[in-house]
């Protein structure tokens, strides 16, 4: 660690400077090699080097917001992973899902989690939901160079806004592009290779004020539709018992549905599709 460079053994000045409350800004001085956007890449496309994570959907509900992701990662026509987890809590009240280059995405997501926690510990208060969304936008922008060489990461961010006046509008979703963003979405959004199909499914079925249970079912249905038409999106794997990851963010904080709960929902969706494959 950087502390080893000071002959007196004390923590270097960059640790004790009053400076910033942002962990990424601190890293850019203390350990820039840990920031994803700071690495020089050789010329040429790196797109086929690493697995790609695929479809994520987020839906607002009356009590907050839910986010679900399928479990597949692909490399070209190969399935790189059947059980990757792409939806994670960003902090106590927000969720982040990653699509794009899996390795860079996971690194970015970990960094974002530390960023939010770090600010909270240094300042003694949480960032606002918009503040969190903007921080994530800045981090994606930092990855633009790599994105242009094929290592793009596009997350989906959703959270429960503690300062919302109307509790029914406290669940909020932000989407991004490779140059940053953020774009606030109304009601629902999907990202990743299967997003066209998931968005089309959600467009027909979404309405404002869904309960968390209804929104969860809708999300799993949308992922099923995405997997139906997109080879890079994995459907519920009944034989291996691998089901989508579903997380909620409400006034009680974030919560991940247990495997049994998601299994029950996925089984219900699959058996309904046995009767009517189009949903």
């Amino acid at each position: 660690m950087a502390a080893g460079f000071d002959p007196s053994g004390r923590l270097p000045d960059v640790f004790t400077n009053a400076g910033t409350s942002s962990f990424t800004q601190f890293l850019s001085q203390a350990a820039p090699e840990l920031l994803p956007g700071r690495r020089p890449l050789p010329p040429g496309s790196a797109a086929s080097l690493a697995p790609h994570a695929t479809t994520i959907v987020a839906i607002t509900a009356a009590e907050g917001v839910i986010m679900a992701g399928d479990r597949r990662a692909t490399m070209g026509n190969m399935i790189a992973s059947r059980d990757i987890e792409k939806v994670h809590p960003a902090d106590e009240y927000s969720l982040v899902g990653i699509a794009g280059t899996a390795g860079v995405g996971i690194e970015l997501m970990r960094l974002f989690q530390v960023e939010l926690e770090h600010y909270e510990k240094i300042e003694g208060a949480m960032l606002s939901l918009d503040g969190k969304a903007n921080r994530l936008a800045a981090m994606i922008r930092g990855n633009l160079g790599a994105a242009m060489q094929g290592l793009a990461v596009v997350p989906l961010f959703a959270g429960y806004d503690l300062s919302a006046n109307d509790p029914a509008r406290a669940g909020r979703i932000f989407s991004y592009d490779v140059t940053g963003g953020p774009y606030e979405e109304r009601g629902y959004d999907a990202i990743g290779s299967g997003s066209i199909f998931a968005n089309a499914a959600l467009k027909k079925r979404f309405r404002a004020g869904l309960s968390i249970e209804e929104a969860t079912r809708l999300a799993v249905e949308a992922l099923y539709d995405a997997a139906d038409d997109d080879t890079a999106t994995g459907g519920p794997d009944l034989t291996r018992r691998i089901f989508p990851v579903v997380m909620t963010a409400t006034a009680e904080g974030t919560h991940r549905l247990t495997d049994d709960e998601t299994a029950a929902i996925a089984n219900a969706v699959v058996s309904a599709r046995m009767e009517n494959p189009g949903g």
């Binding site: 502390a3 640790f15 962990f23 840990l34 530390v114 240094i122």
Partner: peptide, 13 residues
């Protein structure tokens, strides 16, 4: 602050 920074840096690395 230095402690939080050090802990978060080590936790990330």
């Amino acid at each position: 602050r230095a402690g939080v920074r050090m802990a978060d840096l080590n936790g990330l690395s």
